[in-house]
Nucleic acid binder design. Sequence first.
DNA 1: AACGTACCGTAACGTACGGTACGGATGTTG
DNA 2: CAACATCCGTACCGTACGTTACGGTACGTT
Lengths: 211, 211
Amino acid sequence: MGAALRRQEDEFTPRQQQVLTAALELLVEQGERLTMTSVARRASCSKETLYKWFGDRDGLLTATVQFQASKVRMPHVDRRRIDAAVLRASIEQFARDLLTTISGKVSVTLNRLAIGHAGADDSPLGDIVLENGPLAIRKRLKPVLDAGRESRLLRFDSSEEAYRSFFGLVVRDVQIRLLLGEAIEMGEVEVARDAARATEQFLRIFGVGQG
Amino acid sequence: MGAALRRQEDEFTPRQQQVLTAALELLVEQGERLTMTSVARRASCSKETLYKWFGDRDGLLTATVQFQASKVRMPHVDRRRIDAAVLRASIEQFARDLLTTISGKVSVTLNRLAIGHAGADDSPLGDIVLENGPLAIRKRLKPVLDAGRESRLLRFDSSEEAYRSFFGLVVRDVQIRLLLGEAIEMGEVEVARDAARATEQFLRIFGVGQG
DNA sequence: AACGTACCGTAACGTACGGTACGGATGTTG
DNA sequence: CAACATCCGTACCGTACGTTACGGTACGTT
């Protein structure tokens, strides 16, 4: 997590945040083919201002991703005492959060953007997106997993490995299919069902006793 | 699986295959920003020929993806009789295949390409890539899973659902991290280790008895 | 009132690249 | 050889878009 990856929300003036919001909208609507002209028009600002504030097109895109990342504030859950029911509920909640995040339009759009840029230049978009999405949830989940282990409810060697299996069980092929353009219905019902199933399976693997 | 998604290898003349190979190389090297000129130069052909053969840039890219897909011939495994050891070995082999495929440079490149195009136009690239990668493996794995169920070695309601959990356990966050540009070492050793772990976990969830 | 600053709107520039046209070389058929 | 097809090499066209330049306006400061 380099200094450039996280950025405080108040580093952007309100007017700049309007511009970035417009850019994000256009990104969701049109993807990578947004033009500087379209952003200026949507945000009712001049192109000169865009270039003064963000340097160039890449700077605008980077700022947009950072802006979005700065909006995601994570409540920090850290439980010392925990029982089986609380543990299960916590894990299931994280599964819901993760699924909701990655199936959202903004997430799909920004992941597409970062993936597109990962091939060519060495822009920091990939790191920012990675840091903002899965890794953020992982940071929050880790103390829960550790507490579960200390309470003899979970068994694993590395919380890193446990989290990655959790990620796989929750996300499965949903993310890649969404990125590839498949129209998958992921409403509250589907998210809840998948989260419950993933939690069940996770506890089957890492839970102690009958889970 | 529409007719356009699969294409026989011999639908392309040898010279055309040379051109497509060159295009694939450039795609891996430079990603989406390959130009028609660069393809013509690399393949020692004229741009006019490119347009005559493939229509336009999108047609060339589509043909390239189809060409790559046509090269992946899958041996069809279909076992009627099966025991626990064979089942485990088969599943583990599929896990290795899947991991090897998705962590390959060509796979990463073509997935990036298809994801980039999924945002804007409705090009068939996404479907082709999906069909060629995970779904191809799924088709091969399904009879094995079914045989496992019939032999009372596995328990699941839907083989579709079982496969998707298998996919998640195998791939985890590797694919998205690769797509986002992270340099993950995935040699034979890592693939084998991950495949063994995923198989273990899969059997823990879906296996009957102590697995 | 005068000035500087910040910003909008728009016109213009430069260029990269998709796509087309044409000449010439090579090979094939009759 | 003649006629024709295929395809290479290259010059060229049109356009979209990133980037810059510039004139005009609103507003705060002195």
